[in-house]
């Protein structure tokens, strides 16, 4: 088994690492886009009365549709329907972002609704505008309180990103399956791939938890759940 590992995995480690970097790239931009879409959906749902229904429909659709279905839907239907995305990488990023934006919107909403109304009133009393209250009082607290769920969602994005190999984005899973189909030796290659994913996700979640704990204790939120 170790022999096979030396033969198959080590010479191709560059290929796998390149795949891992594509995974990282896709996940990073998907998560950024998800945060942007999620905050917009959440704010519309909470504060814009006329199109609240649209935001609720969007959030429910994103949360209730499986990521795999969304991926194929965005990849095959969107280019004809909306004229974008032009590349498979774009489709992968949009699909992952759609899925997570629904969950993030709900996370942000529960964070905002969890704040006591008195804080907003206090902000108004000292003459802040709505935007200022949002930026200076609501946002920092929501981000800190919701940090664990946001980190959790980040690991979900990485886990879902394994599926983008299906639409031929050359990520880690894609390279691994290509190697398996070349050599017909699944054990070592797939096990190493799985371990790479596990270690990556584990490290990222620990790191993110450290960072969020640091800020939470710095700003006095460590006692909160």
């Amino acid at each position: 088994m170790l022999d096979n590992f030396n033969h198959l995995v080590l010479p191709n480690i560059n290929l796998l690492l390149r795949g891992l970097s594509v995974t990282a790239y896709v996940c990073f931009f998907a998560f950024l886009l998800a945060i942007a879409l999620g905050s917009v959906a959440c704010l519309v749902r909470l504060y814009v009365p006329f199109i609240r229904v649209v935001a609720i429909g969007y959030i429910e659709f994103c949360r209730a549709t499986p990521i795999f279905v969304q991926l194929l839907w965005v990849n095959y239907v969107w280019p004809e329907l909306f004229g974008f995305p032009k590349t498979v990488v774009g489709a992968g990023i949009i699909a992952l972002a759609l899925q997570s934006s629904g969950y993030l919107a709900e996370t942000f909403r529960s964070g905002i609704e969890g704040l006591s109304k008195g804080q907003r009133d206090a902000g108004l009393a000292v003459g802040m505008t709505n935007l200022q209250i949002m930026r200076r009082i609501v946002m920092p607290q929501v981000v800190l309180v919701m940090a664990p769920s946001i980190v959790n969602q980040m690991t979900v994005v990485i886990k879902s990103s394994t599926l983008v190999s299906v639409i031929a984005i050359p990520d880690l899973m894609y390279e691994a399956l290509k190697l398996v189909n070349t050599w017909f030796e699944p054990i070592e290659i797939l096990t190493s791939t799985a371990l790479m994913y596990i270690v990556a996700i584990f490290l990222i979640s620990i790191l993110a938890k450290r960072v969020s704990d640091h800020f939470r204790s710095k700003f006095g939120l460590a006692g909160l759940v």
Partner: peptide, 23 residues
Amino acid sequence: AELFRNTPEYVLLIWVYYVLPVI
């Protein structure tokens, strides 16, 4: 629990389907 929580489902699926039978 940590192992299975951190493994992507798709990777686990492929692993179980291709690797486990060989083992």
